[in-house]
Design a protein around this nucleic acid. Sequence first.
DNA 1: CTGAAAGCGCTTACAG
DNA 2: CTGAAAGCGCTTACAG
Lengths: 340, 340
Amino acid sequence: MAKVSITDVAAEAHVAISTASKALNGTGSIGKDTVERVMEAAKRLGYRPNRAAQMLAGKQKKIGILIPDFPDQIISCFEAGIADAMEEYASFGFRHTLFRYDNRAQGDAAFFDGLELFARKELVDGLIFTPSCVSSVCRDRLMQLSIPKLSLQIRADPTICTSVTVDEPMVGRMAAEFLSLFGTIRSTGVIVGERNIAIHKMNLEGYASEAAARGLELTAIADSYNDMNTAYNETESMLQNFPQIQGIFVSSYVAPAVCSCIRDRGKAGDIRVIGVDVYKETAECLACGLLSAIIYQNQREQGRQSIRQMVSLLLDEPTESIRIKPELVMNCNLSFYYTP
Amino acid sequence: MAKVSITDVAAEAHVAISTASKALNGTGSIGKDTVERVMEAAKRLGYRPNRAAQMLAGKQKKIGILIPDFPDQIISCFEAGIADAMEEYASFGFRHTLFRYDNRAQGDAAFFDGLELFARKELVDGLIFTPSCVSSVCRDRLMQLSIPKLSLQIRADPTICTSVTVDEPMVGRMAAEFLSLFGTIRSTGVIVGERNIAIHKMNLEGYASEAAARGLELTAIADSYNDMNTAYNETESMLQNFPQIQGIFVSSYVAPAVCSCIRDRGKAGDIRVIGVDVYKETAECLACGLLSAIIYQNQREQGRQSIRQMVSLLLDEPTESIRIKPELVMNCNLSFYYTP
DNA sequence: CTGAAAGCGCTTACAG
DNA sequence: CTGAAAGCGCTTACAG
């Protein structure tokens, strides 16, 4: 099976190489039947384009990345994964520009500004973004962009583009199974980010179903609105109102506040807490035992895969949304996930 | 920062492009001072070779892979990871040939045959292998091969080549931490493959140190010699001689036999078992609860990374041995690791 | 709508 | 020891 090149395809279809190239890529204007003939020839011969040659001949592709800037430690994980993958592709001719928008600003203004930056200057060939919004305005604006798009971290409407996210329900399920392992826990509580935001809802649903299957009771649910103080207070009232609770799952990055509250109330050791994501504060809680485990949402791998997907997109290969697997972090393997 | 190419380097060093190329790659024969001048120019300009162009111009690189054929389900995981990565690199011009040697045959004959196959025909530019042996003969034979080499799954003598393996001690440590989570387990046993084989020894040492740190007693150790019947019998006598044991770590793929024995003796539920690696039988034990968790030695990632490393090696980039992180598999996330 | 030609950045015979 | 030239497989102005 000798390697078949575009020259072979062109010959087989009785056209010039340049014509074959245009037909294959859908660029320029070529006769409908010519396209058909070339496509058939390519399929018959089992033609697979040589990426190295494509990169060398075409202009260098540039990937634009638009992500939030808070919370910094977690966003940095995405960046690390992106850097990982880019290092690999950079030597093949891919470039990238990363822009962080202020996701604590009023509304979605900062997100749109970032979008304009990339779109107006036409300086990127593909865009990876984390939407700050679900509004129809956002949707429309994104639809206007004719370059390949990919949503990172937050699942986008599939009619807009494919997504790379963690498997959200699995995060909750793993937390529930973990708490059930102890055998001694019966009543549990969950502190989510904000119940009616899709991602947190999915976390919660996963937790609820797995908890039910394992005989764990879901006694109380509270929203932290991603705020440490709120989380502390909600934990306090949860402990007061439901003294039977022995396990808590914190599905956003406020687990340290929950741990503080439990320690302050002298309940450390009595209540098992499982949080999400690995960063300085959760790592410390895990090390000192206030946190029994962490479900790592694998931001690094999410970042890495988003680049791979975008490269495929830019090379016209078909792609599908993917769900990255969460990983359970205990004390001994923490070093694989976090270095002070 | 405009992209700097070999043309720029050649100009800066006042030599022809072809001379610059040879100097940079150490091919052909060129004056010592010329090489120096080119190298300096390259460094000054921050030259980074374009891989796409290298692949296109050079002859297509072929990677040879020589791995055992037993146990099939586990070796297939390595293969899957290799296929993953090759799919990516194939479109850039890399090829590969995989050969499985019979690792249940007499001595190391089959391994050497495989080695000869690749070496004699000179049909590969780089070799990834899983050594069946640690003999000095093996060592010498490998040293003779002048192509880039990489040891997969089993750590090779670093003077021979770099390795891609799991973090062996961590496998044991995670098992110990997991068993300690229950809070009710005090006395534990370990069933290893073969105590004086390096990889199993490292598993055991990791387990022992983490167990000690967590107040777990390491009551008994037995060798299974990777044989199901032996494992069954060893478990039987362990249960008999040490009835106080409440947790068992099985560090080779014979966990199903250990589970069977425990079930047959009516001890299911009383003794927590944690095994390694995900395949049909362990997946079933996990699903039915005989196994409480599995430490996945991430063969797939090992396979994937071995290809990436080899690609780097073939492109003359520096590499270091890497230790892949094991992952804890519970019931709910089993689907990420195994599909019937 | 189609094709001949230049060129992407490199390596490798080949000739000096 | 050094260099001029061909060519890897593609894309993209450019000319018809």
